[in-house]
Nucleic acid binder design. Structure first.
Lengths: 345, 345
DNA sequence: CGAATTACCGCATACGATTTCACAACAGGA
DNA sequence: TCCTGTTGTGAAATCGTATGCGGTAATTCG
């Protein structure tokens, strides 16, 4: 028992299999990779090899294969925050599609930061993968271009943030959905002072949803005082903070729209902690329709997206590129948004 | 522009750097890997190499390094269900520790199935990593032994499910916590008919928590009719189903304990949909204390665990093994559980 | 001043797989 | 008998990096 520290043990290799089956290592390779179509292998030899594989419990080392210029059988997925339930069905869908292609998925989260996203890109340059699923907030076309140019990787992305000639994207028409929701708030519920909880402007989604909000208010010819705009970091805690700011105003909003459900839920907490009621005192609308939206009381009125479908579409498009079934310009898939009226507004 | 299909482009290699810096590839390797300690490198040479690295934008291919017998700079983490908020702080903690060691984390979820867990083991045999963080429910000592024997990987695990001489484990004393909670339900709230929502017996956690439940009832000399036991699959939907079964009984329970918060939340939904109230008609206690536990109304009484701390402990122990700072027998770390009384019971 | 260090660096090989090329054996046809 | 295929197999190059070993020039020592 020498001190081995953390050095890995020698695994079962193809050569071991070859030795046991009394064939050369290349024959083993051919049997396993199913190259028998082009290069014939004797039936009896094949049997011997398969037996040896089974009795040794051999598994190919995928690093070696990928080094030689083959596929890595791995895709990487970059999401902002796996703690946000919105991404769960998406991750799940991607994993399902990947597994059906015998691929593994490596997930990284970026905490909504540019550093996190850059780290991800570097990471897939050092450890190449066959495909990338991105949910980018800060990455620019240049960053993605660099990554594609260096690794030739296939890419699919969520959102309208990036437009790259070789990247397929899936996006919801969130502008229209926001417009619909706010207009409904004004017309059907006759709100006039509506607060907006967004995120900082380096998120293009935030900018877009605020524009839609502003547009709806403009159309109704309602004022847009600056104190009706608060900004958070997508988390429920930040939504709570934002709502507290609203409530400390001499004239708080009578309704609030938050750009995601987590912040809306946090805002509702703040309302209740202040001894007020939703929707009587402050109506609330969120975005995403995550499961907790139906757990809170009152149930959250929100804009439903279809993350599972979005994930599925991205993954499917990605594998079409990986397998060379498609290699044309970046496609754009629109996924529907649906305004869901519950109890909070 | 030949048709390139999905074949990856040739990346910048060490040889390219070497050529540009007019040195041999091995010198580049030594400069970058900081092996200058054992084999000295001229200051001026080092400069040239670094310049070339920068100007070419070179990143080492980690697959190649790991092939050569080095570290992979990657650990893999296996969790049951990434959609369960309980795991989020744990995943986050593991990632934080890993990144501080310049490691990447690959996450896989198993959907609570044995197949999923086995797939994970196979996957890390084919694509070796330096360390494993496991949240195993079905894996046996034999499976883990096989994995360690073949890859020499370091392992840390959550729970009391596995006991392996080389695996460090972190666990909460959930039996005591359950005992405390149920006893409180009996003594402080004088419940006599208490329902139990568990999981099937191939989860050792489920068995253990049910034993503790049974023990508490025994100590209070209360009956344990079989109709007071329902079983779900950890999801809120299954909790809702289980509760509906309880409510269809001629004599439904006056209190229910669920082995996790998700099922407890689902059960509360069922109570409310039946037009009943928590805690007046049916009191509810969960387990885990995930964020939604404070979002639902009434707020959920539950047993708090500390997933962030657990993740941190596991990761720290793992890296001690990876770096050879520790190589003794498997350590057992106990993390505290805390009974949190809110409004649902 | 010749020999022994030392500082610095390159050559060659190994890691585990894929893939190209070569080749042996054997068949059938001229 | 010679040539040409066909079939089945092995040898060797290759991917990008790490490293043992050996070599060369500069330096130190006796």
């Amino acid at each position: 028992m020498q001190k081995q520290h953390s050095s890995r043990k020698r695994a079962v290799t193809m050569r071991d299999v070859a030795k046991m089956a009394n064939v050369s290592q290349s024959t083993v390779s051919r049997v396993l990779s199913g190259a028998e179509e082009s290069i014939p292998i004797g039936e009896e030899t094949k049997q011997r090899v398969m037996e040896a594989v089974k009795s040794l419990g051999y598994y190919p080392n995928l690093y070696a294969g990928s080094l030689r210029g083959q596929k890595t059988f791995m895709i990487a997925m970059m999401v902002a925050d796996i703690a946000n339930p919105f991404y769960h069905p998406m991750v799940r869908a991607v994993q399902d599609v990947a597994h059906s292609h015998r691929y593994d998925v490596m997930i990284a989260n970026t905490d909504h930061t540019r550093d996190g996203e850059m780290h991800f890109i570097e990471s897939v340059i050092r450890r190449p993968v066959d495909g990338l699923i991105l949910v980018p907030y800060h990455l620019t076309q240049v960053d993605i271009e660099r990554c594609i140019a260096r690794t030739g990787v296939a890419v699919a992305a969520l959102g309208q943030h990036v437009t790259h000639p070789q990247v397929d994207t899936v996006f919801g028409n969130d502008e229209r959905a926001v417009l619909e929701a706010i207009t409904w708030l004004i017309q059907a519920r006759s709100h006039k002072r509506i607060g907006f909880i967004g995120v900082t402007d380096n998120f293009s989604v935030g900018v877009r949803r605020r524009s839609a909000f502003v547009e709806a208010m403009r159309q109704a010819e309602l004022p847009l005082p600056p104190e009706m705009f608060e900004y958070g970091d997508w988390s429920s805690e930040s939504g709570e903070r934002a709502m507290r700011s609203f409530l400390s105003l001499p004239q708080p909003p009578t309704a609030v729209f938050a750009v995601n459900d987590l912040m809306a839920i946090g805002a509702m907490e703040a309302v209740q902690k202040a001894g007020l009621c939703t929707p009587q005192d402050v109506a609330m609308i969120g975005f995403d329709d995550i499961p907790p939206a139906t757990w809170v009381r009152p149930r959250l009125t929100t804009v439903a997206q279809h993350p599972a479908e979005m994930g599925h579409i991205m993954a499917k498009a990605l594998f079409e590129r990986i397998q060379g079934d498609y290699s044309g310009p970046g496609r754009r898939f629109e996924a529907p948004c649906r305004f869901v009226i519950r109890e909070s507004a």
